[in-house]
Amino acid sequence: MALSLTVNGEKRTLEVDGDTPLLWVIRDELGLKGTKFGCGAGLCGACTVHLDGQPVRSCSTPVDLASGKSVTTIEGLASRGDLHPLQKAWVEHGVPQCGYCQSGQIMSAAYLLKHNPAAEREDIVAALSGNLCRCGTYSKIIAAVESVASGESVDREGA
């Protein structure tokens, strides 16, 4: 079936089975590989994207539920070529190890900070406990989010 959705601000029309998980549409139809497949069951958070501003597990979201809606992926987080403050904090703190879960971690954190810009440690832990990291980068993830929430992360680009 043909359906339309807006991805990272761009309207896209696709011919795809409606029960296809949004994840595989994003990755294979739209070529945006930053969103990752981890479990296929909404248990690990690697596939987290924003659907009309809400974080969803795209592996468990049939694409027809996204029809007519707006999707933001890790590739759409930077604005006008400037990295999102969380992405800058991730680099400054050297958060990623294997890196595979980090798109999902950042998307979950971005939602948190949008709605709670001064999030405290316990808010961060609660908001990110649905995102698994097998390498064990949790303490750096929390530190990086805290640095943005507290405004301590220096925006070196001066944006």
């Binding site: 945006l32 590989k33 930053g34 969103t35 992926t73 890790i74 590739e75 930077a78 990295l83 992405q87 991730w90 680099v91 050297g94 958060v95 990623p96 890196g99 980090q102 798109s103 950042i106």
Partner: peptide, 10 residues
Amino acid sequence: RLDAGAKSTG
């Protein structure tokens, strides 16, 4: 880490 940028932007 030299790979932190690529791994934070997908």
